[in-house]
């Protein structure tokens, strides 16, 4: 089971690599078209700024969009935000437009970034949640959050406002938190994603 972790820049990809490996997948960190096409699933990891990531995806944007019809994709943190039509981070930037909605800044009433463990509230069933209960804690680090304009929210979290924590639409999956940094429960979620991809 080959999972392509998209390498669109800098930061720590080692943890997501190890987390997927732990879940029984064969991850590969890549930006190569063929390697991505050849994979059974894709992970869009969550490092860096929105516009840098979108620029980093130039040249493979079409494969990501095409792939989303036939194999599961997991967007993590910034990866979740990239799915959306547009983001307000550092000006207005167009996203992949795979989900309708906008990415906006956290309200000024809370400390930004949100950094730490927050609990999720499950709104609907998802295979991504196998063995994961309502109220479970995950590790969040972000300054922006998505406001979907379609019914894609599986779970939310509360931080000044209600924030979508887990999203699902067809073969598109996403978490605003970092499963690779959320201890055992996070590894469980990655394992669920791999199980979905194995089908």
């Amino acid at each position: 089971m080959k999972v392509a972790i998209i390498d669109y820049g800098m930061g720590n990809l080692r943890s997501v690599y190890r987390g997927l490996e732990y879940g029984g997948a064969k991850p590969v960190i890549t930006i190569d078209r063929e390697e991505i096409e050849d994979s059974d699933a894709i992970v869009l990891p969550g490092v860096g700024a929105f516009c840098d990531a979108i620029n980093g995806l130039k040249g493979i944007e079409d494969i990501i969009k095409e792939s989303s019809k036939e194999k599961p994709i997991l967007g993590i943190c910034l990866g979740l935000q990239l799915y959306f039509s547009e983001s307000e981070e550092d000006g207005l930037h167009k996203g992949l437009d795979l989900m309708v909605g906008k990415v906006v800044k956290l309200p000024p009433t809370v400390k930004v970034p949100q950094m730490g463990w927050n609990s999720i509230k499950i709104k609907k069933e998802s295979r991504l949640l196998d063995g994961i209960r309502d109220g479970e804690f995950f590790y969040f680090v972000h300054s922006f959050y998505a406001k979907p304009k379609e019914d894609v929210t599986v779970a939310t979290t509360e931080y000044g406002v209600e924030i979508p924590a887990i999203l699902e639409k067809g073969k598109l999956y996403a978490t605003q938190f970092h499963p690779e940094k959320s201890g055992k429960i996070g590894l469980n979620l990655l394992k669920n994603f791999i199980a979905i991809a194995k089908e």
């Binding site: 080692r14 190890r18 680090v141 940094k181 055992k184």
Partner: peptide, 11 residues
């Protein structure tokens, strides 16, 4: 750091 990141899945 490498050895830790391979075994510990918290920040």
């Amino acid at each position: 750091v490498e050895k830790t990141a391979d075994q510990v899945f918290i920040p």
